[in-house]
Design a protein around this nucleic acid. Structure first.
Length: 334
DNA sequence: ATAGGGTTAG
């Protein structure tokens, strides 16, 4: 005899989750309806998964309607996870004011924000170009004894300033986070690299690269180390590509070569096509001046060697100084 | 079985 096992609410919720993940909100809703019909009612987790689904589909109104249904029809009050999902949903549709309104509504209901609530609200302000408001939320988080700010929260604070290219402010925050015992990670440095690119401060990229490079290599045998030493950093494509991009644009070819070497060491294929394009568009006529003094030529000889090495790495012809080849000769436009 | 972090091509 075969036992007739009924699916329980976890089984159903797993199915709901699968449909949500596939973007099929209609089918997910049909499962919800079936749960009611067969007497295996959905719980808060089921509803939260559906809420997340609507938010991912940018259907915030549907999400809010579902909150009404879960409250009034199913008698399930939204919890902090539900609210966090809604706050993030507002962010997805660029509604930072709506995100704040939901955060406040949650608190008015006596539901305590978690560090995720605070960080998500910070994201609303960081992504909408209001780093000072993000900072205000961060300060509130620091003053809330129920939560502890973590690396993600610090990174969101940094991101807010970097998005506007406010490099000095970002560096101050990173200094403060270090003083609080948090080591910057690839996300922190990735934000800063983007801020530096936006601010067009390539000198800052050199400083950042030195710090990143230092963190990339593990401490050698015999070297002093203690708990305050930052852990080894595994750089990723976003960080290294941004740094290399800045260096190539700024004609820092020695540094650019170091960075692309680091990319290759980490199994990240550098985008040679892009770097070639930047090189050709910005620097192909470098070192072609016929009026440079001997002193000047001597001063730049090292830079020139680096440029030659970089061209070699790109696979560009590297003995064409003064000739007139351009992008057109590469892609056939001319 | 549910919620938060940078980038993703000038």
């Amino acid at each position: 005899m075969i036992a007739r096992v009924q699916p329980d609410h976890v089984t159903y919720t797993t199915v709901v989750s699968a449909f949500v993940k596939a973007g099929s909100m209609d089918r997910a809703r049909r499962v919800l309806a079936e749960m009611t019909r067969v007497g295996v009612p959905a719980n808060r987790i089921t509803y939260n998964i559906l809420l997340k689904g609507y938010c991912q589909q940018l259907q915030i109104d549907q999400a809010k309607e579902l909150v009404r249904e879960m409250t009034e029809d199913a008698g399930i009050e939204p919890d902090v996870v539900s609210y966090n999902i809604l706050i993030d949903g507002c962010i997805q549709v660029d509604d930072s004011a709506g995100a704040l309104a939901i955060f406040n509504e949650m608190r008015a209901k006596g539901i305590a924000p978690t560090k995720i609530s605070y960080t998500t609200l910070m994201k609303a302000f960081a992504l909408s170009g209001q780093p000072k408001l993000a900072n205000k939320v961060f300060d509130e988080m620091l003053n809330d004894p129920r939560v502890k700010a973590d690396l993600v929260a610090w990174n969101m604070l940094v991101e807010g300033y970097c998005r506007l290219g406010l490099v000095e402010e970002s560096k101050k925050i990173i200094q403060r986070m270090k003083e609080h015992g948090f080591h910057p990670d690839v996300a922190t440095y990735g934000s800063l690299a983007n801020g530096i690119a936006l601010a067009r401060k390539p000198g800052e990229a050199l400083l950042l690269w030195n710090e990143v490079k230092d963190r990339c290599t593990a401490k050698k045998e015999g070297e002093k180390s203690d708990d305050s030493d930052p852990p080894t950093l595994k750089p990723d494509e976003g960080l290294l590509d941004t740094l290399a991009d800045i260096c190539v644009r700024a004609a820092f070819f020695k540094k650019a070569l170091e960075i692309v070497a680091c990319m290759e060491e980490n199994g990240i294929p550098p985008n040679k096509t892009k770097f070639t394009k930047i090189y050709v568009e910005m620097h192909s006529r470098m070192f072609t001046s016929k009026h440079a003094s001997q002193a000047r030529q001597d001063r730049r000889s090292e830079r020139k060697r680096a440029a030659e090495a970089f061209k070699f790495w790109l696979g560009l012809p590297n003995s064409y100084y003064g000739s007139e080849w351009r992008l057109g000769s590469l892609d056939g436009d001319n």
